[in-house]
Design a protein around this nucleic acid. Structure first.
Length: 274
DNA sequence: GCATTACCCTGAAAGC
DNA sequence: TGCTTTCAGGGTAATG
């Protein structure tokens, strides 16, 4: 399940081989992802253009083209954006292929089809339904302790639901929300407007810590995540709570618990998190 | 405004 | 062993 660190790892593995390369043609499966792919517009904007830059905002990847268009893509639950030799066999659930110069393909593979491939002019992309609703990216300067504390104060939800909301912070998902709350020592059920500034500052530090640690480990390969070169990450070995229900806490040896909030699992340590 | 539920979808795991 | 059912989850929409 690609979250910010996994998407960042994909971006970093895409850049060396993608930037400067020309799109010869594209193919799509015709199947609907989270929303339908605008195949005609994709074709018109990509064919003959070169990739100028690869950026990331939250869990979205932005592939900027010399035509002035930008591909806005989300990997959903099971999406992969991977390089393959043109002659390589197509895996099942390949929904988009960008045939590049140099006998190379960039392929979008997504069994569950929860992902997104949209195409916009670079000027309209920030106003797109995907990007316009996002809060600050937690690794950007706009994500400050003041911002986080104020947003927590203005909400009355439990902390888990707040952190999962991409409108507050863009890029956190189930894994890193659980991990960040553990490192901050705050209960997932804590009402956000009852969190002190001091604890908000700890949470801010914890969010950045779990994300930068995972990026250094090239992401968490819990189920099927790989980067654009097909390489697994190693951050699954660095997790403190996620997926560890019934196992001893690495700090206090209490058993890690799992609860369901908003139809998503939350993992936490009852004695380390208050 | 917030919580809950359902939906999209497939593959893995569990159950029989 | 093999078939059927259940579950997982990001984002969105409907409902309470």
């Amino acid at each position: 399940m690609p979250e910010l660190p996994e998407v960042e790892s994909v971006a970093r593995s895409l850049r060396p081989r993608l930037v400067g390369r020309r799109v010869l043609s594209i193919e799509t499966s015709g199947l609907k992802l989270r929303r339908p792919i605008d195949r005609k517009r994709l074709e018109r904007s990509c064919t003959g253009a070169t990739f100028d830059a690869v950026r990331r905002i939250g869990k979205y990847l932005l592939l900027e083209l010399s035509s002035g268009a930008v591909i806005v893509t989300h990997l959903g639950m099971s999406g992969q954006l991977v390089f393959a030799q043109r002659s390589a066999e197509r895996r099942p659930h390949t929904h988009a292929l960008f045939h590049l110069d140099g006998e190379l393909d960039l392929r979008y593979v997504d069994p569950r089809r929860f992902g997104v491939i949209s195409i916009y002019d670079s000027k309209e992309a920030p106003r797109s339904p995907e990007l316009s609703v996002l809060g600050p990216d937690p690794l950007e300067d706009a994500f400050t302790v003041d911002y986080l504390y104020q947003a927590l104060r203005e909400s009355k939800r439990d902390l888990k639901s707040f952190l999962m909301d991409q409108g507050h912070i863009a890029g956190l998902g189930n894994i890193y929300v659980s991990e960040a709350m553990f490192h901050a020592g705050i209960s997932p059920r804590r009402r956000t407007n009852r969190i002190t500034r001091e604890r908000a500052a700890r949470l801010h530090g914890a969010i950045r810590h779990v994300l930068t640690t995972s990026i250094a480990n090239r992401g968490t390969s819990f189920s099927d995540y790989v980067d654009a070169d097909g390489e697994l990450g190693s951050n699954q070995d660095a997790l403190f709570v996620y997926g560890r229900e019934g196992e001893p806490c690495r700090r206090c040896k209490s058993l890690i618990r799992r609860v369901v909030q908003g139809a998503r699992s939350t993992f936490f340590c009852l004695s380390c998190q208050r």
